[in-house]
Amino acid sequence: MSINNDQPDLQRRDFIGKTVLAAGAATVAPGVLLTVANAGSDEGVSSAVRWGMLIDTNKCVDGCSACVEACDKENGIDLIERPQGQSDEMWNAQRPQWIRKVKLRDTQTGEISNLPMMCQHCEHPPCVDVCPTGASFKRADGIVMVDRHICIGCRYCMMACPYKARSFIHQDIAEQLTSAPRGKGCVESCHLCANRIDAGRETTACQDACNQEGHKAILFGDLKNPDSEIARALKAQHSRQIRADLELNTGVRYTNV
C-alpha cells in the first residue's frame, strides 16, 4: 500500500469507482454491477432489502450435514478446540452451533422430515428486545446479529430466543478468521454470512454447500424484491414459519414441514 498524501480515502473511492466501472463494462450481467456498487457505498445496508431464506424440507436429506460443515468452516467454528477432558455431551452442549440438523417425526402420521435450524432472523426479534446494552440488534437489511464489542455476556438473549439459535463462547479461542472474530464470554449466532453479503455476494455458505451436494434445499435472497427467486418461490408455494404463533415474522421459512 503506498499512500503519500493525507487523504487516501478520496483516492481510494475514486479508484473503486473506476474499478467498478471497468468491471461493469466487461461484465455481461448488469445485476453484478449493481451489487458491487452497493457494496462500496457509504450508506451501508439499506432497508430496501430484507435477506431471508426458504428451506425446502423435502429436499433436505437425512444424514447430510454439508450445510453445517460449510457454516463451521466459513465462520471459523471448526477452529475452536475442544477443552481437554470434556465429555461429548458437554462439548455438544457448550460449543457454538450456528446451524444444526434436526430430524422430526409427526406423532400422528409418522411422517419424517429433516431440516436445518438456525437463527430465523425475525422481524421482531425477542433477543433484540431483551438485550440490556443493545448489543443484539437487527441490521437495516433484516439480519439479526450481535455486536460483540458491547455484548456483556449476560445470556438474556439466549433465554429469550424461541429457536435456541444462539451460542455462548464458553472458552478461550486461540485462532479466528479475519472475517469471523470470536472471543470468550460473548454470544453469537448465524448472521446469514453478512460478511459475504457486504462484499456483494448473494449466497450463504450453507446454501453453496447444499447446492454443491445437489440437494438445493436452501434458497437465499431478498424477500422484498418481488423479482428475486426466493420471493417468487414464496409466492408460488405454501411455506410456514416456525413458531408462527409468536408472530415474529421470521426471515427464514420452511416448506413441506
Partner: peptide
C-alpha cells in the same frame, strides 16, 4: 475480466488495497 455470472464480482478490502498499490 473473466467474471462468471455464478461467481459475481467482489473485491475484498485487501484485494483493493493491493490493486491500489499497483496503480
Amino acid at each position: 475480466l473473466l467474471q462468471s455470472v455464478d461467481q459475481p464480482l467482489s473485491l475484498s478490502r485487501d484485494e483493493l488495497t493491493r490493486l491500489h498499490a499497483k496503480i
